[in-house]
Design a protein around this nucleic acid. Structure first.
Lengths: 101, 101
DNA sequence: AAAATCAATCGTATATTTGCGATAAGCAAT
DNA sequence: ATTGCTTATCGCAAATATACGATTGATTTT
């Protein structure tokens, strides 16, 4: 992509908010998170049953949510249990709260 | 893009939240909105001075924010005055509020 | 050690996003 | 009607996102 020569430096909280928002910017990921909030936790397999998407696609969405810090995976062999990352969840919550006044 | 055969139907509020989140998913757009919240309103030209981005790029970001419904433009010849769309702003605010509990 | 199970990653295809410069379009004043 | 100012759109290039099937990797059970 053609980019501005001087890479723009935004305030840290601006970047953070954009990062969280981007992660939330897809209905499937919103739905996954809602599911996690309700169930408190769940496994990838469960989600594959809930959504008409390939396992690899679900996994990819989970990865993005994990990268954004909104969820975390706990090894629960032979499965992996995904939960909301409460700490960052609070951070995101307050970022959005402050943003909207 | 290879898509699921059956286009997934999400709840309306899930789609709406994802739409707003997507619009917020770029630091420049966050910064623009913060600017608008502070200034209450402003013109495209002002933003071009504030951000080291081409006028066309700013215009594109404004377009996305407008499409998402977060801002609105008022003709103030020869300029266009952009403001927060208070109505949708409230909607977005409560969607994020509910989402984060 | 082998088999089974589950999730992650790879490779691919396509769509969308982001950025730019250049051009067009809208409107006011001349 | 022409000019000048402001913003939108077009056309392009490159990056990123979204989805899939196929494969790999990790771990437990047999």
């Amino acid at each position: 992509m053609k980019r501005s020569l001087e890479q723009i430096e935004y305030r840290e909280d601006t970047e953070a908010l954009a990062k969280y928002a981007k992660a939330l910017g897809h209905p499937t990921r919103i739905a996954i998170l809602k599911h996690l909030v309700n169930q408190s936790c769940c496994f990838t397999g469960d989600l594959v049953d809930v959504f008409p998407l390939a396992q690899s696609t679900i996994s990819q969405h989970l990865k993005e949510l994990k990268n954004a810090g909104l969820i975390q995976g706990e090894l629960k062999p032979p499965k992996i249990k995904y939960c909301i990352n409460q700490e960052n969840w609070k951070v995101a919550k307050s970022l959005f709260q402050n943003f909207f006044d």
